[in-house]
Amino acid sequence: MLDFLKKDKIDSNKSSYGMWYDTWRRLRRNRAAVVGLIMVTIFLLVAIFAPLLAPYDPAEINLAAILQPPSSQYWLGTDYYGRDLLSRIIYGSRISISVGVIVQLVSISIGTLMGSLAGYYGGKVDMIIMRLVDIVMSFPSLLLTIAIMVALGPGLYNVFLALGAVWWTKTARIMRSEFIRHRKKEYVEAARALGNNDFVIMYKHILPNCLAPLIITFTMGVASAIMAEASLSFLGLGAQEPTPSWGSIINNGLQYLRTKPWYSLFPGLAIAYTVLGFNLFGDGLRDALDPKMKNN
């Protein structure tokens, strides 16, 4: 009898990590996704070990070495304050990853809350929330972000708020449809019959079943957030001097494009590399988490 129980336990354990194990197996077989994962890992390592990797202090002004071309001393050249561009790009990775992750945390939290309320309760709650979603989605996203940034003032923290406030609608729509799909399921009925309140049912029972779309939204969203922050900083609305944001380095380099093209070249390559890594990995993760969505 004990043997029987033991076997049962092993089997149930196996199924509890089955989805993640299967996902990892499928992901490993996808060459593009593995390349993406390696690219993202390198980017994260650069961000973590920035102080060890950067040859100079990214904010150190050196008026004797203004606008130096790439050389053995300054591998990627220097900017108009004589600051080492390689060091600034290395430290810029920290800005990018913090924007990517925090913007996604903000927008996914708001989106999940709104989407779950709309999907679970339906009726008037759903109507009000979805009209709000419609209003936010009626703006071209960059335009609304710009308007919010103008109202809040430029700066990195406001970028988190502005992008979070614009992007939650996508998650809200996804979570709403997930909650509508789940709310009538037997396990939800069972949880309700056991006397659980709505909060427990929504966030302890339904939410864990909606993790796959959330993870996909998060990974793809990190790439979009990095791109959006670069665009805002390029327009002068994002991170301010002396914060080494990739977008603002490109913006500063624009006026030297004819004579010093390398100024803007390298930060642009850094953005393209990072966003490409997250896109490759996100594509692969989506296919691995939800094979039915493949090619759509």
Binding site: A223, M227, A230, S231, F234, G247, I250, L254, L257, S264, L265, G268, I271, A272, V275, L276, N279, L280, D283
Partner: peptide, 14 residues
């Protein structure tokens, strides 16, 4: 995918 990952303003500068 490379083009999707490239910032529009940077591509314009190139």
């Amino acid at each position: 995918l490379l083009f999707i990952s490239t910032p529009v303003f940077w591509f314009g500068m190139l």
